[in-house]
Design a protein around this nucleic acid. Structure first.
Lengths: 213, 213
DNA sequence: TCGACTACTGAATCGAAATTCATTGTTGGC
DNA sequence: GCCAACAATGAATTTCGATTCAGTAGTCGA
C-alpha cells in the first residue's frame, strides 16, 4: 500500500521529464554528429553524458532508440513552429519564405543536430530508413500544399508540378545547409534564404505578372 | 631471369583489368546499396561476387578501399562525360541543362550506385568524409564556373551569388533523384530535368529579357 | 608425369562494442 | 541510526565481423 502511494504511476522516473534523459539525448546527438552512428560506441555517449554505460539502458531500449527519439523530437518541434507561424502568415510566398528561413536557421539553433540529419538520416540502416523517410515525406507534403494553393490562386505557374517544386526547394535549401555545416562556413540564414527563395519564386511566378508590368 | 620475363610488371594480375576486380566492385556496390556500408559484412560482398572472403584482400587493401574505389571511378566517368560534351556545347544554359540531364539519368544507368551515393557518401565516417567531400566540391565548382560565365555574358542575373545558384541546382536535382530512388518511383529524366532547369533558369535569367519582350 | 608457382580458399584469430546483471550507493521513512 | 527500495554502476558476457594465413588446386614448362 505504501509503495503504491509513493509511486506516481503517471510520471516514470526514467521518462522524458528526468534531467538525465535529456543529457543522454544531447550527448548522443553530439557524439553521433562527430563520429557517425556506427562509430559511436554507447560507452562514448555515456561518457559524454556523464553516466555509466548501463544507465542508458534504463532510459532507452537500445542505441537506435536514442537516435530515433532525438530525431523525432526535433521534427516535432519544427512542425509545431511552422504550424504556429502559419496561423498569422497566409500568403503562399510568405509561407514558403518562412519555411526556408526556419530550415536554414536550424544551423545556429543546434549545429550537431543538423549534421546528424544530413548524415545519419540518409543511411540505409533499416531502422533509420523507415521513420526518417516518413519525416521527409511530411515536409515535402507541407511545401507541396502551399505551392498548390499558390497555383490555384494564380500566384504561381501551373505548368510545373508542385511535387517537383517542393523537392527543388527542399533540396536546394538542404544542400546549402549541408555545405555550410560541412565546410564550417558561417552564413546569414536570412540573407541566404532570401536569395534562394528569390530565385525559386522568381522561377515559379506566374507569367501574368510580366504582362501586368 | 625466367621469372622476371614471365611477370609483366606493368599489368598486375590482381589489378583493374582482371575480371574479378570488376565483379567485386559491382557486388560491393549492390550489397552496400541494399544494406548500408556498416551492415554489409565482407563475407556478403564476397558471396555476391562469387569469390571467397580472402580473395577480396588480394584485390583491395581493405573494405573501405573497395567503397572508395567504386565511388572514385564513378565520378571519374561522370567528369569525363561532361568534359567531352562541353567541347560541343558552349551556351551556359545548354551546359547546365546537360549536367542536369546526366545527373538525373544516372538513375537508369546504375541504380545501386545512386543509392550508394545518396547514403554512404554523406556518412561522417572519416574515410568517406574526406574524399567524398572533395568530389562534391568539384561538381559544385564546375556548375559555378558555368554560372559565372553566364553572368559575365549577361545571360544570367548578377544579383545572386554563383555559389548559391550552384548549390541550389545540385541540391534540387539530387533531392529529386534521391526521392525517386527511395520511393522506387519511375520518372522521365529528360522531362524532369527540363522542369527543374526551366524553373531555375527562369529564376536566374537576367531581367533584360523581360524588357526586350 | 613431376615440380614449382601462384591464385584462391575459408576456417581461425582478434578486437570491438551492444547489452546484461550482480553489486553498490543513496534516499526517505521510521 | 536502521532498513527497504530503487537508481546507478561498470565489469562480464556474448555476438559479430574484418582481416589473416596455412593449406589446396590448377597451370605451365620440362
Amino acid at each position: 500500500m505504501k509503495a503504491a502511494l509513493k509511486k506516481a504511476e503517471s510520471v516514470p522516473v526514467t521518462g522524458p521529464a528526468n534531467e538525465k534523459y535529456q543529457r543522454i539525448l544531447d550527448a548522443a546527438v553530439e557524439v553521433i554528429a562527430e563520429r557517425g552512428y556506427f562509430c559511436s560506441p554507447v560507452s562514448a555517449i555515456a561518457k559524454r553524458a556523464g553516466v555509466a554505460d548501463g544507465t542508458i539502458y534504463l532510459y532507452f531500449k537500445s542505441k537506435d532508440d536514442v537516435l530515433r527519439t532525438a530525431i523525432d523530437s526535433t521534427f516535432e518541434k519544427f512542425y509545431q513552429q511552422v504550424a504556429e507561424a502559419f496561423l498569422t502568415l497566409d500568403g503562399p510566398r510568405e509561407q514558403l519564405e518562412y519555411i526556408a528561413r526556419v530550415h536554414l536557421e536550424s544551423h545556429s539553433v543546434n549545429r550537431s543536430m543538423v549534421v546528424l540529419m544530413q548524415t545519419e538520416m540518409r543511411q540505409s540502416a533499416k531502422f533509420i530508413e523507415e521513420f526518417s523517410h516518413h519525416h521527409l515525406v511530411k515536409y515535402i507534403q507541407m511545401v507541396r500544399e502551399v505551392v498548390r494553393r499558390g497555383q490555384e490562386q494564380g500566384i504561381f505557374r501551373q505548368d510545373v508540378s508542385d511535387g517537383v517544386v517542393a523537392h527543388c526547394m527542399f533540396g536546394a535549401i538542404d544542400e546549402l545547409l549541408s555545405s555550410a555545416v560541412f565546410t564550417g562556413r558561417e552564413y546569414d540564414a536570412k540573407d541566404t534564404a532570401a536569395q534562394v527563395m528569390d530565385v525559386l519564386l522568381n522561377g515559379i511566378t506566374a507569367a501574368a505578372s510580366t504582362d501586368q508590368a
